[in-house]
């Protein structure tokens, strides 16, 4: 994988496919499926501040983060950008590539220098259409990631760290 500052590296080689298969997100996936994904994948590295995608853009890629730290954000009129969530090592960056109309729902920006495997989404979708086994293996991994983020969002909605009750209710 290339050093930060080089926006796109070379397509993942055979050796890189083993590295891809060792990523936490793909761990346990049969080698044959990893090899298919590797053909649609390349290593990428981004400096802090690099924007991976912008809200409303075409979700034609997704990333498996190897190191670093990425913020999902959204812009709001009259306010600085709001950070929705951050992702890091071992995480999947990008879910919208799997959900029509394949448009990013949020933006994503590197908070730290970040290295990742970048996958070509249309190619991966086509491979899944052609081989439901690969599609199932991939969804088995996407679903827990999505579920975990939904769970986290619900917990944050509870505002657990707010004072318990209104001032005056407590001792």
């Amino acid at each position: 994988m290339t050093a930060p500052g080089t926006p796109h590296g070379e397509p993942v080689s055979v050796a890189g496919a083993a590295e891809l298969g060792g990523h936490a997100f793909l761990r346990g996936m049969p080698d044959a499926y990893v090899a298919v994904l590797a053909r649609a994948c390349r290593g990428t590295a981004a400096r802090a501040g690099h924007r991976f995608f912008e809200e409303g853009g075409t979700a034609d890629r997704f990333w498996l983060i190897v190191s670093g730290h990425v913020a999902l954000d959204v812009s709001a009129p009259g306010r600085s950008r709001l950070i929705v969530e951050t992702l890091g090592k071992g995480d999947l960056l990008g879910l919208s590539w799997l959900v029509p109309p394949y448009e990013w729902q949020f933006g994503a920006i590197a908070v730290q220098d970040t290295m990742a495997f970048e996958l070509n989404a249309p190619a991966v979708r086509a491979a899944c259409e052609g081989d439901p086994g690969l599609g199932y293996e991939l969804l088995r991994r996407v679903m827990p990631a999505a579920s975990s983020r939904l769970h986290a969002a619900r917990i944050r909605m509870l505002d657990l760290y707010a004072a318990a009750g209104q001032a005056g209710d407590g001792p």
Binding site: H69, S80, E85, T86, G88, K89, Q112, A152
Partner: peptide, 23 residues
């Protein structure tokens, strides 16, 4: 450190503390 709410410029994590266990 992770926070529930952050604005641009916050360089730490945003999310629930259980997500930090993964890292």
């Amino acid at each position: 450190v992770t926070v529930d709410q952050a604005m641009e410029g916050w360089a730490g994590h945003v999310g629930v503390v259980t997500q930090l266990l993964g890292y």
